[in-house]
Amino acid sequence: MEDADSEKGQKNLIFAPFQSAVDEGFWHKLSSLKLNKLGIDESPIPITGFYAPCSHHQVPSRLTLLAESLPSEEDQEQSSSVPSATLNQGNRNRCPVPGILYNTNTLEGFQALDKKSLINTEAKKIWDDIHTGKVEESSSLLLRFIVISFAELKKWSFCYWFAFPGLVLDPPARVVSLRPASQCLSSEQAESLSAACNEWRNTSLTTGVSFFLVCIALNSHVTIRHLADLEACKNDGHKVLFGFYDPSNLPSNPGWPLRNYLAYICIRWGLEKVHFLCYRETRGFVDLGLSLIGEALISVSPEWKTRECMPKVVGWEHNKGGAKPNVISLAKAMDPTSLAISAA
């Protein structure tokens, strides 16, 4: 249908932004870290966010911060107990994403943060990781994110703002087709794809790997492989779909991870026509009616692909009220005085 159309039939590929969610436990842990270990040290803190493919068609999946997102207070000392990070390995509902937290000591400091430069710095890391091939070793580097925050510990309130740096393709990628996966595959392919996806998700070593290759052989047999295996897949004459765990639940908008993924595919593999799979689930199993298969065209200028030429970046989260930080007060849950009053 649309495949035959020329330029005019094609629209821009429009990505659904990542959404953030912060568990109350994260703020409790940050407060204790601040009081017991960090003091007035404002150095950026490496954190881990967690996400999973969309698993309920009504809501997107979110990038979530939990208490375990922060480094442990005993990191330096040899802790005898099992570290939380080890305990959570292979948890399919917690695909780890590297992030960085800038927590300031004052509200003025928070407001004075140069948000443009912060997001550019983080995007530069993504850009470099694409060019150096580090992404093949650890694909979640494409999803790097930033949180800026100000923790008013005396009043138990927290001011914060997420950014998910997205490299801007110029001109934007065009959609050739984007349809439910179930409509794009033969029944043999669909069956084989479902089995391969469920196996990938159920294997603890790969369950947290959110970018992968879907290789469809001529005999409809589907295998899922790591990004680094692209050459091998092509040499085998397989049709390759670039798959990723899609947090979006929308029928015509792939989620944010596809943005930097396309930049990676375009730069690293020089492809201008990309077939991709937005992997989504229902009740924890692949749902090919909800998952999308699409074809996009990328036609950036040659300079765009050189490492020196850093593209434009977008990605500060739109919060309630627009371009503003979020504020949460946990006074009722954390302040000993009000806890005492409510207990009396």
Binding site: F150, E152, N253, A323
Partner: peptide
Amino acid sequence: EDIPDISEFEEPDNLIETDPATL
């Protein structure tokens, strides 16, 4: 009154840019 006042939080207009590829 305990919550930092962010009503006067003025961001430069270009922080969240209109990007044709962002929903």
